[in-house]
Amino acid sequence: MDLALLSALNAERAARRATVLVTETASGVQRLVKEADLAADPLAALLDKQLRSGKSGAVEAEGVSYFLTVQAPPPRVVVTGAVHISQAMAPMAEMLDLDLAIIDPRTAFATPERFPGVTLLPEWPDEAIKTLGLDGYTAFVALTHDPKIDDPGLEAALRSECFYIGALGSRKTHGRRVERLMAAGFDEVAIGRIHAPIGLDIGAVSPAEIALAILGEIVSTLRGPRRHLS
Protein backbone atom coordinates (compact mmCIF):
# COMPACT_ATOMS: atom_id res chain seq x y z
CA MET A 1 0.00 0.00 0.00
CA ASP A 2 1.27 3.48 -0.84
CA LEU A 3 2.03 5.58 2.22
CA ALA A 4 0.02 8.43 0.64
CA LEU A 5 -3.02 6.15 0.53
CA LEU A 6 -2.54 5.17 4.18
CA SER A 7 -2.19 8.84 5.20
CA ALA A 8 -5.39 9.73 3.32
CA LEU A 9 -7.20 6.85 5.01
CA ASN A 10 -6.05 7.93 8.48
CA ALA A 11 -7.03 11.56 7.75
CA GLU A 12 -10.57 10.49 6.80
CA ARG A 13 -10.81 8.39 9.97
CA ALA A 14 -9.72 11.34 12.10
CA ALA A 15 -12.42 13.50 10.46
CA ARG A 16 -15.07 10.82 11.22
CA ARG A 17 -15.75 10.10 7.54
CA ALA A 18 -16.13 6.55 6.20
CA THR A 19 -13.90 5.11 3.46
CA VAL A 20 -13.49 1.83 1.59
CA LEU A 21 -10.03 0.64 0.54
CA VAL A 22 -10.40 -1.45 -2.64
CA THR A 23 -7.66 -4.04 -3.26
CA GLU A 24 -7.67 -6.07 -6.46
CA THR A 25 -6.78 -9.47 -5.05
CA ALA A 26 -4.75 -10.81 -7.98
CA SER A 27 -2.65 -7.71 -8.75
CA GLY A 28 -2.61 -5.96 -5.38
CA VAL A 29 -3.65 -2.69 -7.11
CA GLN A 30 -5.40 -0.43 -4.61
CA ARG A 31 -7.53 2.69 -4.45
CA LEU A 32 -9.23 4.56 -1.62
CA VAL A 33 -12.88 5.51 -2.09
CA LYS A 34 -14.21 8.24 0.20
CA GLU A 35 -17.84 8.15 1.27
CA ALA A 36 -18.54 11.35 -0.73
CA ASP A 37 -17.12 9.85 -3.95
CA LEU A 38 -18.74 6.46 -3.53
CA ALA A 39 -21.71 7.04 -5.87
CA ALA A 40 -19.39 7.84 -8.80
CA ASP A 41 -17.26 4.68 -8.38
CA PRO A 42 -17.60 1.82 -10.92
CA LEU A 43 -18.21 -0.56 -8.00
CA ALA A 44 -20.66 1.86 -6.32
CA ALA A 45 -23.39 -0.71 -5.52
CA LEU A 46 -20.96 -3.25 -4.04
CA LEU A 47 -19.07 -0.64 -2.03
CA ASP A 48 -22.27 0.84 -0.68
CA LYS A 49 -23.50 -2.59 0.45
CA GLN A 50 -20.19 -3.37 2.15
CA LEU A 51 -20.05 0.03 3.87
CA ARG A 52 -23.58 -0.38 5.21
CA SER A 53 -22.64 -3.75 6.71
CA GLY A 54 -19.76 -1.98 8.48
CA LYS A 55 -17.53 -5.00 7.85
CA SER A 56 -14.57 -5.64 5.58
CA GLY A 57 -14.83 -8.55 3.16
CA ALA A 58 -14.04 -10.19 -0.18
CA VAL A 59 -16.29 -9.53 -3.21
CA GLU A 60 -16.32 -10.38 -6.90
CA ALA A 61 -17.41 -8.24 -9.86
CA GLU A 62 -17.27 -9.33 -13.51
CA GLY A 63 -14.84 -12.13 -12.73
CA VAL A 64 -12.41 -9.92 -10.76
CA SER A 65 -11.91 -10.51 -7.02
CA TYR A 66 -11.51 -7.60 -4.66
CA PHE A 67 -10.92 -7.22 -0.96
CA LEU A 68 -12.80 -4.29 0.55
CA THR A 69 -11.42 -2.82 3.78
CA VAL A 70 -14.25 -0.84 5.33
CA GLN A 71 -13.18 2.02 7.59
CA ALA A 72 -16.25 3.27 9.38
CA PRO A 73 -15.68 6.16 11.82
CA PRO A 74 -14.82 4.92 15.30
CA PRO A 75 -17.96 4.69 17.42
CA ARG A 76 -18.35 7.51 19.91
CA VAL A 77 -20.21 7.92 23.19
CA VAL A 78 -21.55 11.34 24.16
CA VAL A 79 -22.63 11.61 27.80
CA THR A 80 -24.46 14.33 29.74
CA GLY A 81 -23.26 14.23 33.33
CA ALA A 82 -19.69 14.41 34.67
CA VAL A 83 -20.80 12.05 37.43
CA HIS A 84 -19.48 9.00 39.26
CA ILE A 85 -20.79 6.57 36.59
CA SER A 86 -19.10 8.49 33.77
CA GLN A 87 -15.83 8.52 35.77
CA ALA A 88 -15.96 4.72 35.82
CA MET A 89 -16.98 4.68 32.16
CA ALA A 90 -13.96 6.68 30.94
CA PRO A 91 -11.22 4.00 31.23
CA MET A 92 -13.61 1.27 30.05
CA ALA A 93 -14.58 3.26 26.94
CA GLU A 94 -10.93 3.82 26.11
CA MET A 95 -10.21 0.08 26.18
CA LEU A 96 -13.23 -0.56 23.98
CA ASP A 97 -11.98 1.98 21.38
CA LEU A 98 -15.04 4.16 22.02
CA ASP A 99 -14.33 7.90 21.84
CA LEU A 100 -15.91 9.47 24.91
CA ALA A 101 -17.14 13.07 25.25
CA ILE A 102 -18.70 14.29 28.50
CA ILE A 103 -20.97 17.31 28.69
CA ASP A 104 -21.83 19.02 31.98
CA PRO A 105 -22.42 22.76 32.49
CA ARG A 106 -21.69 22.32 36.23
CA THR A 107 -18.02 23.28 36.19
CA ALA A 108 -17.45 21.80 39.66
CA PHE A 109 -18.22 18.37 38.15
CA ALA A 110 -16.57 18.72 34.74
CA THR A 111 -12.96 19.08 35.87
CA PRO A 112 -9.84 17.56 34.27
CA GLU A 113 -8.83 16.29 37.74
CA ARG A 114 -11.95 14.10 37.83
CA PHE A 115 -11.63 13.14 34.13
CA PRO A 116 -7.97 12.96 33.13
CA GLY A 117 -7.50 12.69 29.38
CA VAL A 118 -11.24 12.78 28.59
CA THR A 119 -12.91 15.23 26.19
CA LEU A 120 -14.88 17.51 28.56
CA LEU A 121 -17.39 20.13 27.48
CA PRO A 122 -18.39 22.30 30.47
CA GLU A 123 -21.35 23.77 28.56
CA TRP A 124 -25.09 23.30 28.18
CA PRO A 125 -25.88 20.27 26.00
CA ASP A 126 -27.57 22.20 23.17
CA GLU A 127 -24.41 24.30 22.74
CA ALA A 128 -21.99 21.38 23.19
CA ILE A 129 -23.87 19.12 20.77
CA LYS A 130 -23.80 21.87 18.11
CA THR A 131 -19.99 21.67 18.33
CA LEU A 132 -19.77 17.86 18.49
CA GLY A 133 -22.48 16.91 16.02
CA LEU A 134 -24.30 13.59 16.49
CA ASP A 135 -23.96 11.07 13.66
CA GLY A 136 -25.00 7.47 13.03
CA TYR A 137 -21.79 6.27 14.71
CA THR A 138 -22.63 8.04 17.99
CA ALA A 139 -24.31 6.73 21.17
CA PHE A 140 -25.93 9.28 23.48
CA VAL A 141 -26.24 8.65 27.21
CA ALA A 142 -28.04 10.90 29.74
CA LEU A 143 -26.75 10.44 33.29
CA THR A 144 -27.37 13.62 35.31
CA HIS A 145 -30.89 12.87 36.72
CA ASP A 146 -31.47 16.59 36.08
CA PRO A 147 -34.03 17.32 33.33
CA LYS A 148 -32.53 20.78 32.78
CA ILE A 149 -29.33 19.08 31.54
CA ASP A 150 -30.52 15.69 30.27
CA ASP A 151 -33.63 16.79 28.33
CA PRO A 152 -31.95 19.16 25.82
CA GLY A 153 -29.38 16.40 25.15
CA LEU A 154 -32.07 13.76 24.66
CA GLU A 155 -34.04 16.04 22.35
CA ALA A 156 -30.96 16.61 20.18
CA ALA A 157 -30.24 12.85 20.18
CA LEU A 158 -33.83 12.02 19.15
CA ARG A 159 -33.54 14.44 16.23
CA SER A 160 -30.24 12.77 15.16
CA GLU A 161 -29.29 9.39 13.70
CA CYS A 162 -27.56 8.21 16.91
CA PHE A 163 -27.35 4.40 16.92
CA TYR A 164 -28.07 4.26 20.64
CA ILE A 165 -29.85 6.53 23.11
CA GLY A 166 -30.04 5.73 26.82
CA ALA A 167 -31.23 7.59 29.90
CA LEU A 168 -30.60 6.83 33.57
CA GLY A 169 -33.48 6.83 36.01
CA SER A 170 -36.19 4.70 37.57
CA ARG A 171 -39.36 3.77 35.69
CA LYS A 172 -41.13 6.59 37.51
CA THR A 173 -38.46 9.13 36.52
CA HIS A 174 -38.62 7.87 32.95
CA GLY A 175 -42.44 8.14 32.98
CA ARG A 176 -42.17 11.84 33.77
CA ARG A 177 -39.46 12.20 31.13
CA VAL A 178 -41.74 10.62 28.51
CA GLU A 179 -44.49 13.13 29.42
CA ARG A 180 -42.07 16.05 28.98
CA LEU A 181 -40.79 14.74 25.63
CA MET A 182 -44.39 14.18 24.43
CA ALA A 183 -45.17 17.77 25.38
CA ALA A 184 -42.10 18.83 23.41
CA GLY A 185 -43.60 17.18 20.31
CA PHE A 186 -41.93 13.74 20.14
CA ASP A 187 -44.17 10.76 19.38
CA GLU A 188 -44.11 7.28 20.91
CA VAL A 189 -41.95 5.77 18.16
CA ALA A 190 -39.26 8.43 18.64
CA ILE A 191 -39.33 8.14 22.44
CA GLY A 192 -39.21 4.34 22.08
CA ARG A 193 -35.63 4.72 20.83
CA ILE A 194 -34.56 5.59 24.39
CA HIS A 195 -33.18 2.66 26.39
CA ALA A 196 -34.71 3.09 29.86
CA PRO A 197 -34.04 1.66 32.35
CA ILE A 198 -30.57 2.02 30.88
CA GLY A 199 -28.07 -0.83 30.49
CA LEU A 200 -28.06 -4.61 30.28
CA ASP A 201 -29.89 -6.29 33.15
CA ILE A 202 -26.89 -7.62 35.07
CA GLY A 203 -28.11 -6.45 38.46
CA ALA A 204 -25.60 -3.58 38.46
CA VAL A 205 -25.25 -1.79 41.81
CA SER A 206 -21.99 0.20 41.94
CA PRO A 207 -21.17 3.06 39.53
CA ALA A 208 -18.61 0.85 37.75
CA GLU A 209 -21.15 -1.97 37.35
CA ILE A 210 -23.71 0.48 35.94
CA ALA A 211 -21.05 1.82 33.54
CA LEU A 212 -20.33 -1.77 32.47
CA ALA A 213 -24.05 -2.49 31.92
CA ILE A 214 -24.42 0.67 29.79
CA LEU A 215 -21.31 0.01 27.69
CA GLY A 216 -22.38 -3.64 27.31
CA GLU A 217 -25.73 -2.46 25.94
CA ILE A 218 -24.01 0.00 23.58
CA VAL A 219 -21.67 -2.72 22.23
CA SER A 220 -24.61 -5.10 21.88
CA THR A 221 -26.55 -2.47 19.87
CA LEU A 222 -23.51 -1.78 17.71
CA ARG A 223 -22.60 -5.39 16.96
CA GLY A 224 -25.86 -7.26 17.52
CA PRO A 225 -26.14 -10.45 19.56
CA ARG A 226 -24.77 -13.50 17.76
CA ARG A 227 -25.50 -16.42 20.07
CA HIS A 228 -28.94 -17.96 19.75
CA LEU A 229 -30.61 -20.34 22.18
CA SER A 230 -31.64 -23.44 20.24
Binding site: L6, S7, N10, R13, P74, M95, D97
Partner: peptide, 12 residues
Protein backbone atom coordinates in the same frame (compact mmCIF):
# COMPACT_ATOMS: atom_id res chain seq x y z
CA UNK B 1 -3.92 -2.35 24.28
CA UNK B 2 -4.02 -1.37 20.63
CA UNK B 3 -7.10 -0.64 18.56
CA UNK B 4 -7.49 -0.69 14.79
CA UNK B 5 -7.18 3.12 14.64
CA UNK B 6 -3.94 2.99 16.64
CA UNK B 7 -2.58 0.30 14.34
CA UNK B 8 -3.16 2.23 11.11
CA UNK B 9 -1.87 5.45 12.68
CA UNK B 10 1.21 3.56 13.88
CA UNK B 11 1.79 2.10 10.40
CA UNK B 12 1.79 5.67 9.03
Amino acid sequence: ISTDSDILATAE
